[in-house]
C-alpha cells in the first residue's frame, strides 16, 4: 500500500468510524442519531446564513491547522497555537482600534501586527529548542497560559473593562457582498487570507530551498547537519512561521468575526482544534483544507443540535476527539490495510 494512499485512507476511515461511534453514544444516551445528524447537517447547510457562518468558522481553523502542520513538518509540535492566536487577536484588535489610517494601510498593518505577535510568541519556544534543546511541547503549553493572562490584563488596562472598543471600519475585513448573498452572516474576507496562506505555505514547503531544508530537518537532524544545513536556524524559522500563521488566525477573529477583543476565562479552543485539523490533514497544506472544512463545519453545525434535536453540542467535540484517536492509532489501521493488500497479492 503506497504511503500517499494510506494518508488519504486512514483519515477517511477514522471520520467514518468517529461518526459511527458518535451515533452509538447518542443511542446509549437516549437520543436519536438520525435526528442528531439531521440537525448537524441543517446546522451546516440549512440556509444561506448557516453556510456563510460555516465558512466563517472554517477560516481560523485553516490558519490554525496550517500553523500546527507547518511546525510538524520540521518535527516540532506546536501546542502553543492557542496562545499565539490569542496574542495575535489582541495585536490586530489593538492596531484596529487605536490607529487612524486609510484602509489600504490599516488592514495590512493590523494583520502584520497579529502575525508578528504570534511569531514572537513562538520564537521563545523556538530559540529554547534550538539553543538549549528544550522540549517545545512544555514551553508552548506554558506560553499559552502566559498569553491568556497577559492579554487579559492588557485589555483591562487599556479598555478599563472586559471588552475593548470596536475596531475602526478601515481595519475591518467585512465584505458587503458576502453579507448580501449569505443573509447577513459574519462571513468576511479572512477566508481569502487563509486560502492565500495555504497556497503560500504549500509553495514554501514544496518549491523552495527553505521548505526542503525545513522538511529535511524534520526527517533527520543529523543528516541535515551533515549536509551543511543550519539545523538551529531552521528550527527557529519553522516555529516563527508557525506562530505567524497562528497570529493570522487571531487576526481573522479580531478583524473579521468579532471586530473587538475581550478577556477570556479560558482557551478559545481554536488552537487545539488546529492540532486536530493538522492531524486529520496528515500535516499537508492541502490536507489541512480537508481537515479545517470538516471540523469547522462540524463545530459550527453542532450549534444547531440543541435547538433542533435537543442534543448538547458537545456531542461534536466528542466525535472530533474520537476521530483524532483513530487517526493517532494509524498503526493499527496500517496493519489491517497491509493485511488486506497482502491477501490480494497472494490471490
Amino acid at each position: 500500500m503506497s504511503k500517499s494512499l494510506r494518508n488519504v485512507l486512514i483519515p477517511i476511515l477514522a471520520v467514518i468510524l468517529g461518526l459511527i461511534v458518535g451515533a452509538i453514544i447518542m443511542l446509549i444516551s437516549g437520543y436519536s442519531p438520525i435526528l442528531g445528524y439531521t440537525a448537524l447537517w441543517n446546522g451546516i447547510f440549512g440556509d444561506l446564513y448557516t453556510i456563510g457562518e460555516t465558512i466563517r468558522q472554517i477560516t481560523p481553523y485553516l490558519l490554525a491547522g496550517l500553523a500546527v502542520a507547518f511546525a510538524f513538518k520540521t518535527g516540532l509540535f506546536n501546542i502553543g497555537v492557542e496562545g499565539q492566536l490569542i496574542v495575535g487577536w489582541f495585536a490586530a484588535a489593538y492596531v484596529g482600534f487605536s490607529f487612524e489610517l486609510p484602509m489600504y494601510l490599516h488592514i495590512p498593518l493590523a494583520i502584520l501586527a497579529a502575525g508578528l505577535a504570534g511569531g514572537l510568541w513562538a520564537f521563545v519556544p523556538g530559540i529554547l529548542k534550538a539553543r538549549l534543546g528544550v522540549n517545545e511541547v512544555v514551553v508552548t503549553i506554558m506560553m499559552n497560559y502566559i498569553a491568556l493572562h497577559i492579554t487579559n490584563a492588557l485589555i483591562r488596562a487599556i479598555a478599563g473593562k472586559d471588552t475593548s472598543e470596536r475596531i475602526h471600519e478601515t481595519a475591518s475585513l467585512r465584505n458587503t457582498f458576502f453579507e448580501e448573498i449569505t443573509d447577513y452572516s459574519r462571513l468576511h474576507n479572512g477566508i481569502f487570507l487563509a486560502l492565500i496562506a495555504v497556497v503560500v505555505i504549500w509553495f514554501i514547503l514544496e518549491k523552495t530551498t527553505l521548505g526542503f531544508e525545513l522538511k529535511a530537518v524534520g526527517f533527520n537532524q543529523d543528516a541535515s547537519k551533515y549536509a551543511g544545513m543550519n539545523v538551529k536556524k531552521n528550527i527557529v524559522i519553522s516555529m516563527v512561521i508557525s506562530g505567524f500563521l497562528a497570529g493570522l488566525a487571531g487576526a481573522t477573529e479580531a478583524l473579521g468575526t468579532f471586530e473587538y477583543v475581550s478577556t477570556k476565562g479560558g482557551m478559545t479552543g481554536i488552537g487545539f482544534d488546529g492540532i486536530a485539523v493538522a492531524i486529520l490533514g496528515a500535516n499537508n497544506p492541502l490536507g489541512v483544507i480537508f481537515g479545517a472544512t470538516l471540523f469547522g463545519a462540524l463545530k459550527y453545525g453542532s450549534l444547531n443540535m440543541p435547538n433542533e434535536a435537543g442534543i448538547p453540542e458537545e456531542m461534536v467535540s466528542i466525535i472530533i476527539a474520537i476521530i483524532i484517536f483513530f487517526v493517532a492509532c494509524g498503526f493499527i489501521f496500517q496493519l489491517f490495510l497491509d493485511k488486506l493488500s497482502k491477501k490480494k497479492e497472494v490471490k
Partner: peptide
C-alpha cells in the same frame, strides 16, 4: 497502538472536555 503520546493526550483532553459537559447538559 503506538500512537503519538502527545496527540493521544491532546485527544484525551478534548474528549474529557466534551464528554463531561455533554453529560452535565
Amino acid at each position: 497502538f503506538r500512537a503519538d503520546q502527545i496527540i493521544s493526550g491532546t485527544a484525551l483532553n478534548m474528549l474529557a472536555a466534551g464528554l463531561t459537559i455533554f453529560l452535565v447538559k
